[in-house]
Every structure is written in C-alpha cells, then in structure tokens.
C-alpha cells in the first residue's frame, strides 16, 4: 500500500544567531534535518521518537507547512509539500505547542468554534463538532469557562480537542501527554487508539519510549536530525538479535561507566538519572557470564548497587544500541 505520508530525503538548514556579547551575535548554520526519509501507511499509528532537540518538531513543522524544507520532498495525503500547502493544512489535524496554541481569554468552546471557522467549516457543523469533541474529551464542565482558568492538563486536553475540529484523516500529535497526570495521559492514549480504530492515521511524537511501545505499530527513531532506526516496534526490538539488556540501579559514577565500557562482551552501556539514583543500562550478548565481572568492576569503582534486573529489550534499548546514549541526554543541535 502506498504511504499516506511520504518523506524523501528531507533536509532543513536554518540560520541561528548566537549571542557573543551585549550587541554582538554570530550567525551559524544549523542542520536540523539531515535527509530524513519516511513512509507512513494509512490507518497506522506511527511514532516519531527521539530525545529533546533530535529534530522531531522540526520535521513535524516541515510536514505541517510551518517551515519550508531546504531540500527533499514530501507528500501528505497525496498533496505535495510546498506546492499544495493549503490542501495539506486542511487534511491534517495538529497538536503542536500544546497549550500555547490557544486563546486564553476565550472559552474552550469559543476556541473550537474559531479554529473550526479557519478550517472553513459552516457554523452549524462547527457547533456540532465542538459539542461532540467536548463530550468525547469530557470537557463539558469547563467548556464555557475562559481557558486562562484551566489547569495545565485541561489546557492540553483542549489543545488536543482543537486538533480534532476539522475531522482530518491525519492527526499529528507532538508530545500530547506532556504536563498530563497519569490518568489523563492514559485516557488520552485510549482516545488516540479509538481515533485510530475509526480510521485516522496518527503521527505521534514522544520522547517517552514506553508510550510509543503502547501505542505505535511502527516507529522512526530520530537523533541529531537523522532517522537512525525505522520499522515495526517488534522488528526493532528483535534487531538487537540475541543481545540482552541488564539494568543496574544505585549510586554509579561516570568512571564506573567508563570501566564497564571497557569490559569484553559489552556492546553498549549508558548511564541515566532515575528517581534520584543512577540507572546503568548494559546491552550485552552474554548476560550470564558477564554479570559477576560487571558487579566486580562496578564495586571496584565505588558503586553502591541497589537492584540488578535482566530485562526485556525496550525501544529505549534500541536507541541506546544505536547511539550509545539514553533518551535523557539532551542532543540539542545547537
């Protein structure tokens, strides 16, 4: 089946000013996308994963016509990017910038009505769609209150509602569960799944790999402006082959990490902070033989281990296997 979204070798270079003094700045070129190619099939939930600053939002902004790509091509719903931009905008529902994309002095319902008019919906249909979405997202109680009085989570929900107003076949959701509490995030994911079952193609960007594993059939992992892995979630995990993942939690120093990296049998190792302590993720091909040597090396480097867990391979491990870094590392391009 031909993709509903096709991206071919998309590059984006922009100029960025770096302040060097009070009235001085230096202009530098930033290569935010380095030839990204993707194909997203109709009716799938496709995850765009990567750490902050990886280029996910730049890609989304290019696909939603907010930014002009420097080179490459893309087709959304069969419409060519840069040539049929209005058709692309009409065929996509977007949730970008979260709560910042709303008018805070207006009520939730007034916001939905306004954006409905900008998608050229007739007044009657706008009212019907707004009420339907408000009901679906359980926003009835707050719909007629000014957005400025909403909590952060309620604003995010309304931003999500705004993405649904034009009933587009493609939904692009950029980190939609940011600032949501756990039950609200779960509820939103369930709605995303339902919308997908109703036939919508969904592009879902997140830096939370677990979320992508729950929702997405296929994903592309982006890092430093490049797609470093792409495919079905199951295939990506299996691509690590017979590799095993061991997670060690406790107080683990950078020098301990470097010592572990030198051990034979270690394919990759990455250190991250988790709930106030360190988590060392080790990708290896020989879990059973390695463990005693691993513990010995760490204790020699004053590590205090609290928990050791051999685990199933996750998408985060796929990311570590490709980059040698965890998602917590900021890979901002600037």
């Amino acid at each position: 089946m031909k993709g509903q979204v096709i991206v071919e070798n998309l590059k984006k270079i922009y100029l960025s000013k770096q302040r060097t003094g009070l009235f001085q700045s230096r202009t530098t070129e930033v290569e935010a996308l380095k030839g990204v190619s993707l194909e997203i099939k109709a009716g799938e939930i496709f995850g765009l994963l990567g750490p902050n600053g990886a280029g996910k939002t730049t890609l989304i902004k290019c696909l939603t016509t907010l930014l002009l790509p420097t080179s490459g091509a893309a087709w959304i719903n069969g419409y060519k990017l840069t040539e049929e931009d209005n058709a692309i905008r009409a065929s996509v529902g977007c949730m970008l910038m979260g709560e910042r994309g709303l008018y805070w002095k207006l009520t939730g319902r007034e916001n939905l009505d306004f954006f409905g008019a900008l998608y050229h919906l007739p007044a009657g249909e706008r009212r019907r769609r707004s009420s339907e979405i408000i009901q679906r997202l359980h926003l009835e109680e707050i719909a007629d209150r000014a957005v400025e009085s909403y909590s952060s989570g309620q604003k995010m929900k309304l931003a999500f509602a705004k993405a649904l107003i034009n009933d587009a076949p493609i939904l692009i959701l950029d980190e939609p569960t940011n600032t949501l509490d756990v039950p609200s995030a779960r509820e939103l994911r369930e709605i995303v799944q339902t919308l997908n079952q109703e036939g919508k193609t969904i592009i879902y960007t997140t830096h939370i790999m677990l979320e992508a594993e729950i929702l997405c059939e296929r994903v592309a992992i982006i890092d430093r402006g490049e797609v470093i892995a792409q495919g079905a979630v199951v295939d990506l995990k299996q691509s690590l082959g017979r590799e095993k993942v061991i997670r060690l939690e406790g107080v683990i120093s950078e020098s301990a990490l470097r010592a572990v990296e030198q051990l034979p049998g270690i394919n990759r190792a990455a250190l991250a902070m988790l709930n106030g302590h360190n988590q060392l993720t080790v990708v290896t091909a020989e879990e059973s033989n390695l463990l005693p040597r691993l513990i010995e090396t760490l204790t020699q480097h004053q590590a205090l281990l609290q928990r050791i867990t051999p685990e199933e391979v996750t998408l985060e491990d796929v990311f570590i296997a490709h980059t040698g870094r965890t998602l917590a590392d900021n890979t901002s391009l600037q």
Binding site: T64, T65, L66, N86, A87, R89, A90, V92, C94, L96, M97, R100, G101, L102, Y103, F115, L118, Y119, H120, K162, N166
Partner: peptide
C-alpha cells in the same frame, strides 16, 4: 497562537 492559525488552510 500565530503558529496555530498558520496551521489552518
């Protein structure tokens, strides 16, 4: 909100 309205046709 400027980006929000530029997302529409």
């Amino acid at each position: 909100t400027l980006e929000s309205i530029y997302l529409t046709p």
